[in-house]
Amino acid sequence: MDFRFSEDQLVLVESVRDYFSGTHGPEVLRRLDVDGNRDPAIWQALVDMGLTGLCVPEAHGGLGMGLVEAALIAAECGRVCLAEPLVDTAFVAVPWLIAKGETDKLSAIASGDHKVALPHVLNPWVADGEGKPQTSVDPLRNLAMFPASGSNDDRLLNLGALMNAAQLLGLADAMLEQAVEYAKIRTQFGQPVGAFQGIKHQLASCAVAVEFAKPVVWRAAAAMQDGLETAPVHVSHAKIAASDAAMLTAETAIQVHGAMGYTYEVDLHFWMKRSWALVGGWGDRSYHYKRLDAAVLGGSIPIGPEHTFA
């Protein structure tokens, strides 16, 4: 029993975070927003870091890592509000294809030459897929109408929901940080607004929500990775916890920014819009609540102090 990430996992996260923080600031999002929102150079960098092949077995040219690593990197993608379809392709589609035994596209995915957008019946759209375009509130999301051939496979749904939850953690972290930084420099009534308890306590409440959502997401990733029968319950728990934390943090962050938060020129809106999008995708809050309800009240998961890791 050890609820820590391994050294290797931490090094992986740190290297990805370092790369993003050096190259993928808000100015990149603004450029994509104006110039067209996909950039082969960014994609290539993700390929070069091995992220497209993160979960692809080594035999197919990947790194052969698991869902915990994938969730960790998904959180980093959320943190920088990455627009490229890395998560859907490499952390949702790849593990699903592997589970189904469909390995023929894996090396093309690892090499960055093949992107996959899987439709699921719970989504009315496909992100970065083929079809009649739909406009998202998030200018960096490319949606297409839901194709008739969507899957209703639960494992696919769980992978999508887990990775949305992980991205939402990163998004929430980033929004909280943006609000904190703004609260340090914005002065009103003779002091930084972040020195007022009225602001401090709201931001502290966000920190509580985000920090206690995190272990739920990591636990869900481990449960999926380990193939626990109860994994879908943990995924639903994770999706709700991360969604609620992100919604709260988005509303608090814009409030702390005041009128500036309502402008396009402040970066926050990119993160808020992505959060709203991911909260709804791969099973919305009500869907995942119902699964949790069925488990807890319906008795499909054992509860009580001795069942922490049921």
């Binding site: 009315p124 739909q134 406009t135 998202s136 509130v137 709804g280 995708g281 919305d284 809050r285 009500s286």
Partner: peptide, 13 residues
């Protein structure tokens, strides 16, 4: 309303 709309919430139309 956004939560009720679920995956449709993000659509401008």
């Amino acid at each position: 309303a956004m939560l009720l709309l679920g995956a449709h919430a993000e659509l401008k139309r």
